[in-house]
Design a protein around this nucleic acid. Structure first.
Lengths: 107, 107
DNA sequence: CTCATTCATAGCTCACCAGCTATACGCCAA
DNA sequence: TTGGCGTATAGCTGGTGAGCTATGAATGAG
């Protein structure tokens, strides 16, 4: 398999989309109109980005009358953090191995 | 400004490129030829991806004779982790606020 | 019912980029 | 120097996707 992280990375790679996600994280639930007001792009584009974020599991939507409220999905970034920590841990293991080697050379 | 995270996200969004970075993290320093052998794409493509990773500060290169050795750059993922933790912290603050609200309602 | 409002979808265009092949560049060996 | 090897660059092509406008669908107001 290509990693499950694939969709998360690809979804967050677009600046406009990531900015929308950031706003939802910082300011909580927002309607499409509210997001569009400061997104710098047209409403259909915002809707498209929100659909992409939803597909990636990064946001959830709640319908109320004519409006759709979007909010950030808690824990959605966990896989990303886990992956980054895993990558970093490999470096640390290498440094540990180097340390061991140096210790053995000291003896 | 568009965030500094922009280049990191964009660079890691491509599966082939991210796979190359992962290998460098897991297995340490590798030559272009060694990376190409298992990358599933041609050597020029691998070189191009490595150049992109270098531009993003994710890898470093070391020239030795005809070969170029690439390795993952320690700490390169820190901004990404910081960003994710920041986003997550907003959720937690909201939960704290909700807790406070519920406490006040109890009184 | 009729109209306005809010959002989603359709359909298009344009720019970007991942992939390729061909080739240039740099370095070692003979 | 000549040739072969490892890597980088040039130049092209196809596919993907972000943006737009126009329009459809659903709901609330009057």
């Amino acid at each position: 398999m290509t990693n499950a992280h694939d969709e998360i990375f690809r979804t967050l790679a677009d600046p406009t989309r990531r900015a929308i996600f950031e706003r939802l994280c910082r300011e909580g639930e927002k309607t499409v109109a509210a997001l569009t007001a400061k997104a710098g792009v047209s409403q259909p584009v915002v809707s498209k980005h929100l659909a992409a974020l939803k597909r990636a599991g990064l946001v959830r939507d709640r319908h109320q009358g004519r409006q759709t409220h979007y909010s950030a999905e808690f824990g959605a970034l966990a896989p990303l953090v886990d992956w980054a920590n895993e990558m970093t841990s490999f470096w640390e293991k290498k440094f540990d191995a180097l340390e061991d080697l140096l210790k053995r050379m000291d003896q």
